[in-house]
Write a protein that binds this DNA or RNA. Structure first.
Length: 272
DNA sequence: ACGGATGTTCGCGC
DNA sequence: CGCGCGAACATCCG
């Protein structure tokens, strides 16, 4: 559940779960999610706390509790925060950490592949942590300044798609959003970043904004439905996951190549 | 059964 | 130093 739109959705849901509630008890299973330690701190520091603020920076969730306790959560590839009405509903599969709340609900962090990460911080502003400071501008929070993006892209000869997925360039863009934005901007993902023109960068900036907005809407008001565990899964994207299907613009088949170790769907005809 | 999947990090060779 | 590549992490799905 990883790119910016999904993490933004997770942030909204998690605010609803936690805001105004008291944490009666916190637990964490011994897993890689707490690599670097912090599993015990999660349990001891969160008991008796209330959430004060929950923000998102790129793909990170920043939870600030009273008493100066902060939790940083990255969902990795398959992490999600879910709410269960009560204990009797049982523990969901792959629950790695749990918050028992004063309304009888339990909020679980579930993560089958354990690529996600949770760290606990006392008396520290979360947005001053090195991993947060390293992030580039967040498209939703800060917007995308085409000039700043052009400068960042000019510093590397890597394929523009790989550069867009660099979290120091823009925070929150992953394989889906980079793929979709480059299609919308009609720029080939293979283009060396430093050879993308000013005009194209402007198109890319707008395309990222549009793609994120579109994906957030596709999520619907309540649940993200695409790529979900549900019965019928509809792919809402223009080219991502559509290899061999007709390009929505020119009807020629969508092509997939590998860039930076990730699949990159694109239209070889429309994207230059 | 094999291969790929929304992410990040590391090591290696050039 | 920059860059490409492959591997690693652990599990599911087609």
């Amino acid at each position: 559940m990883p790119e910016l739109p999904e993490v933004e959705h997770a942030a909204r849901m998690l605010r609803g779960f936690l805001m105004g509630r008291l944490i009666l008890r916190a637990e964490a299973s011994p897993t890689r999610v707490f690599r670097g330690g912090g599993r015990r701190a999660f349990a001891s520091a969160l008991r008796g706390r209330k959430l004060e603020r929950l923000e998102r920076r790129g793909k990170y969730l920043l939870l600030s509790f009273d008493g100066g306790v902060g939790v940083l959560s990255h969902l990795g590839m398959t992490g999600k925060w879910i709410r269960r009405e009560g204990q009797r509903e049982g523990r969901p599969l792959y629950s790695r950490a749990r918050l028992m709340l004063d309304d009888g609900s339990v909020v679980h962090y579930c993560d089958p592949r354990l690529f996600g990460r949770i760290t606990v911080h006392r008396g520290a502003e979360l947005d001053r942590l090195p991993e947060i400071r390293a992030l580039g501008p967040d498209p939703l929070r800060d917007g995308i300044d085409p000039r700043a993006l052009a400068e960042a892209l000019a510093r590397t000869s890597r394929p523009v798609k790989v550069a867009l997925m660099d979290q120091r360039v823009i925070a929150g863009v992953g394989n889906i959003q980079a793929t979709e934005a480059l299609f919308r901007a009609r720029v080939a993902p293979t283009r060396p970043a430093n050879r993308v023109t000013t005009r194209e960068v402007a198109r890319i900036a707008e395309a990222i904004r549009a793609s994120i907005a579109f994906t957030l809407e596709a999520a619907g008001p309540d649940e993200i439905t695409y790529l979900s565990e549900g019965a019928r899964v509809v792919n809402p994207f223009l080219v991502y996951g559509r290899e061999g299907l007709p390009c929505p613009r020119c009807r020629r088949p969508i092509d997939t190549i590998s860039l930076g170790g990730r699949s990159s769907a694109h239209c070889a005809s429309c994207q230059r």
